[in-house]
């Protein structure tokens, strides 16, 4: 039983690290700032959450502290992603030519 939980925990660690890798790959491959934020910050958040869950399986005594780190990440990461995206948009960051529509720029121009 203990061994089974250990192996599940180890697999969660590997899965989480794999998501970290996907996130970084997205960060590198995506064509503009907004898509980089999308791929980078959020996929890595899930990766870290899975790693924390894996660590909780391996060391149940650390559960509370790991949960605290997880809750903290869930609340702070989207905020920093939003603030960064907002900053990029205000600074007029270049958007990829693939972009289909930008309602925010339309509305900003309408008010100005």
């Amino acid at each position: 039983m203990g061994l089974l939980i250990d192996i599940i925990g180890g697999l969660l660690l590997v899965g989480g690290a794999a998501f970290l890798l996907f996130g970084s790959l997205g960060l590198l491959r995506m064509p503009d700032v907004f898509n980089r934020i999308q791929a980078g910050t959020k996929t890595t958040t899930l990766g870290t959450l899975l790693t924390l869950a894996g660590a909780a399986c391996l060391q149940p005594a650390w559960g509370w502290k790991l949960l605290l780190i997880g809750v903290f990440l869930i609340f702070t990461n989207p905020v920093s992603a939003q603030v960064l995206a907002n900053t990029a948009h205000r600074r007029g960051a270049q958007k990829t030519p693939l972009t289909k529509i930008d309602r925010l720029a339309e509305d900003r121009e309408g008010k100005a």
Partner: peptide, 17 residues
């Protein structure tokens, strides 16, 4: 510069792992 800050954010998350 925003790209670099995004990368920095991701680097910290990886460092926490």
């Amino acid at each position: 510069r925003v790209d670099r800050v995004v990368a920095f954010d991701v680097l910290t998350v990886i460092a926490i792992t």
